[in-house]
């Protein structure tokens, strides 16, 4: 089962717009994608559950996917987070 850890590195953390980008990306895949941050878990395709992770800068996210093209989905989400959601900082 593909899994990986990514650290949130953009200044404002997983705020509304960043969460929207992540959800939009995740929704392009058929597989189930789960994000874990501390004790909280979120469905990567539900924006509010992603926002409710309250992942600020420096928080570590555990990504986990199951199903079609799971590896690819995680690759792309990891890249998005590492690129700081393409935000101008």
């Amino acid at each position: 089962m593909p899994e990986r850890e990514v650290t949130i590195s953009n200044r404002l953390g997983l705020h509304a717009r960043a969460a929207a980008k992540l959800v939009n990306l995740a929704s392009q895949f058929d597989c189930d994608i789960e994000l874990r941050c501390g004790e909280r878990t979120a469905n990567a395709k539900n924006i509010m559950s992603v926002m409710m992770l309250a992942a600020a800068k420096g928080a570590v996210l555990l990504l986990h996917a199951e199903g079609d093209r799971a590896e690819q989905a995680l690759d792309q989400i990891e890249t998005l987070i590492k690129q700081r959601f393409d935000e101008l900082e």
């Binding site: 717009r17 969460a19 929207a20 939009n24 469905n43 539900n46 509010m48």
Partner: peptide, 19 residues
């Protein structure tokens, strides 16, 4: 572009199962 993203965020919320 980020201003459009404010609206996109709200659109996504309207599709969220929590709502």
């Amino acid at each position: 572009a980020e201003i459009g993203a404010f609206v996109d965020t709200h659109l996504l919320m309207l599709e969220d199962s929590l709502l």
